[in-house]
Design a protein around this nucleic acid. Structure first.
Lengths: 340, 340
DNA sequence: CTGAAAGCGCTTACAG
DNA sequence: CTGAAAGCGCTTACAG
């Protein structure tokens, strides 16, 4: 079918310009080291032949791919889609390309993907969260692949992190809930196993309860996948608790939307009969009725800064320090003030 | 900081196993061509040394990267996030890795990204829609890079497509709208320039109008970016039309959610005062109140089949034929039956 | 500032 | 079935 037109090589360009391949290579990679006259001649030949460097050869000789890998739980969650979009844009702005894989929240799959992206020559890796087998970090270190953990902020970890304080944010939201007079609190959490963000949010809730002299262990908690239907189902179960919760807090907005649906199906009004809170502040949180009280997380900014930080490390600039982003509690209709 | 432990090469494995590098290479790439005894010895050495093939060298020698590139408008639209997730999963199942770039619906940026992914050694490319500069297709053909256009179904195009009939789907939805007694129809369209899906949907509406003896040119149309706020604004403008529309059809669900918001802000009830329709059937369409009448598109399936089809072409299996997926009209609360 | 040449680590005809 | 060797197309010390 399609004939492969002979793709020009460095050699062809060198010959056409009457210089050595070394000079052509320099014109392309460090033009300031070639005198202008020579450079012009070379560039004209490059244009004329439509030359593009051969990727494999370049990678092999330079030992770099200008490719960054990212492994996220799933692109179907808007927070990762948004963060990854910003991450990719920033990568592109700095001359890097994005390699993407997903783990479906499964540590085993994530390990496989890490090895796969490393085998594909990723110059650096973006991972979500920081809780994983130390052997994985050891493996990456042995191959000198920089890693950045995002969606968490852990200033004391060995690797850099770019994210926010999941625990503190949830604690802050829970404090508001308590301030609003709620005493019977239930939680629909994401699966905490292998998900340090979910685990931290649960701990944040417990922190707030303890600080207010409430029994942190008495709180009904259901762990369930981040799906609307799972949220609806967990909500129905939690509403059977005795005493019945006056507020159902959720590990993220997707679960909160599910809880909202559960309430509707049970014929309960939100927030009159029961309050609901979320986490993340995805678009959905403001679109549903009632609008959901949640924690705003700057996902785009997180993706952008993660890209900058990671590239700085790959290029051995910057100090590789962790960056903390600020989240903020957004009080909306779905949370009732019982003291009012 | 981290010392680069010497990464073992093919040579090291060959020496350890007492065979040539050719044999080690064969054990890894076509094991059936090596006798079992030798193969075992080699595999033990591979394990012992923790050998992983060097990516650049392999690419250069084999002239393949086992990497597929995808360029989508934006991951922030749930339809692309979902399709891309399925695409990536299928790629992974077949031993390929995904390179992702985004175009923000800008042909210029898309061209740049195509060149960038080709330069990164993509073995094949997934693009959205099919309407682009012929020179781009010529460029890809000259480099023997297979391309697949998704989200459209064009059986007569030179390149394979995997998608659905945008025009026919919109025509079908519009027919329902007309059957329901609506005569004053308005459209909030995506930007049709450089977006053949948006253009096809507009044409589909016109088809239906003509077929029912209505004036296709009299329909008020506003083209606007796929953003909720843009949809709300367009809705407010369209409701000033004389005669006032009884239904505002939208180019996708995001715009429809915006229209819904616009209606709420104007104090209009949907569908009592005005009907609204969308396109795509993203989760949002069933979450909002009232639920949105829309066209269901099998995004995950499209991503999965696109991956299979593209890999088959890359590996020179299959015939590279286009695949049509079925969409279906979903009648929900947001469309009022005026004949009832 | 520029060139000759080694070297990066694989794969793959070609022999045997 | 296995090996010796060429070759893939760059980059980069090293000279000059």
């Amino acid at each position: 079918m399609s004939e492969l037109r002979d793709v020009p090589t460095l050699d062809d360009v060198a010959r056409a310009a009457g210089v050595s391949t070394a000079t052509v290579s320099r014109c392309l990679n460090s033009p300031e080291r070639v005198v202008e006259k020579t450079r012009n001649r070379v560039m004209i030949a490059v244009e004329a032949l439509g030359y593009t460097p051969n990727f494999g050869a370049r990678v092999m000789a330079a030992k770099r791919t200008f490719t960054i890998g990212a492994i996220i739980p799933t692109m179907e969650n808007a927070i990762f889609a948004r963060g990854l979009q910003a991450f990719q844009e920033e990568l592109h702005a700095r001359g890097y390309t994005l390699l993407v894989a997903s783990s479906a929240y499964q540590p085993k799959i994530e390990e496989e993907q890490i090895r796969s992206l490393v085998a594909r020559g990723a110059d650096g890796l973006l991972l979500i969260g920081h809780d994983r087998d130390p052997a994985m970090y050891e493996y990456l270190r042995s191959r000198s692949i920089p890693v950045l953990s995002a969606w968490v902020y852990l200033p004391d970890s060995d690797q850099p992190t770019v994210g926010f304080d999941n625990r503190g944010s949830m604690r802050e939201l829970a404090q508001k809930v308590i301030d609003f007079g709620h005493r019977h609190i239930a939680l629909i959490s994401g699966i905490t196993q292998g998900n340090d963000r979910a685990a931290a949010r649960l701990e944040g809730l417990r922190d707030a309860l303890r600080e207010n002299g409430l029994d942190a262990d008495a709180v009904p908690v259901i762990e369930t996948p981040y799906e609307i239907e799972s949220g609806a189902q967990a909500f129905r179960t939690l509403m059977q608790s005795d005493p019945r919760p006056s507020v159902v807090m959720c590990g993220n907005d997707v679960l909160a939307v599910g809880a909202l649906r559960g309430a509707r199906e049970m014929g309960l009004s939100v927030p009159e009969d029961v309050s609901i809170t979320g986490f993340d502040d995805i678009e959905l949180a403001r679109i549903v009725t009632p609008q959901i009280t949640t924690v705003h997380v700057p996902h785009r900014e997180m993706g952008r800064i993660a890209a900058q930080t990671l590239i700085d490390i790959v290029e051995k600039r910057g100090n590789g320090a962790s960056v903390e982003l600020k989240s903020s509690v957004q009080i909306r209709e779905s949370l009732r003030d019982l003291t009012a």
